[in-house]
Amino acid sequence: MPDAIILEHVWKFYGDYAALRDYTLPVSAGSCCALLGRNGAGKTTLLRILAGLSPFQRGSVRVFGEQPRSDKARRQLGFLGHGIGVYEDLSARENLRFFAQVASLRDTGATVESWLERVGLARVAEMPVRQFSRGMRQRLALARTFLHNPGLLILDEPFTSLDDRAIAMLSELLTEARARGATIVLSTHQLREALAIATHVALIENGRLRYAGERTEEMLNDPGLLYRLHTELGGA
């Protein structure tokens, strides 16, 4: 399978300090890669680089053969970071409509309505997000991320702090995305959930890539295995 993302010898510096050291990581198209590692290991930095939100200093990153900031790459990209990325003072419909316009979708109105329906917000579509409950916000954020059928999904800790309904919805959306051939990169420190969906795993420690490869059955049975084998601290 061709590679959707190719990282070659990527270094990211804050001044003289290397936050990411010499990353080489291919992610093949249609796979789901889970980035594992402790807080502060560099997962978010790596995801921001892939999403074109953060410049890097050395090496090269190709997303579908293009620079991460290129038009083509961003057209394919669905990014969900720590924030939900929707406006508090706009209604759910206005939010989705705006992001649909920005993505230059053809049938804006119909797409937005079908997504409102799908995430169960059709009834409250006119309400400003300010008045939404936590779960409703999360579902709106999911609709915002998946609105334009992205071919590459970059999700930073997507399962953290989701309620049950949103977790079910996200799993469904991810399965569906996999089915139409989308590539997924997600970071998490919740091993079990991540390993269940992932086809590949990459383990990061202190800005270094410790392990990258396919997810095996052994890992599913013993989620701590990876840490014990490949980190300096040995998972202590």
Partner: peptide, 11 residues
């Protein structure tokens, strides 16, 4: 250099 050392120490 000092800044990078401080970041290293924090990491």
């Amino acid at each position: 250099e000092i800044d990078s050392l401080r970041r290293l120490a924090n990491a």
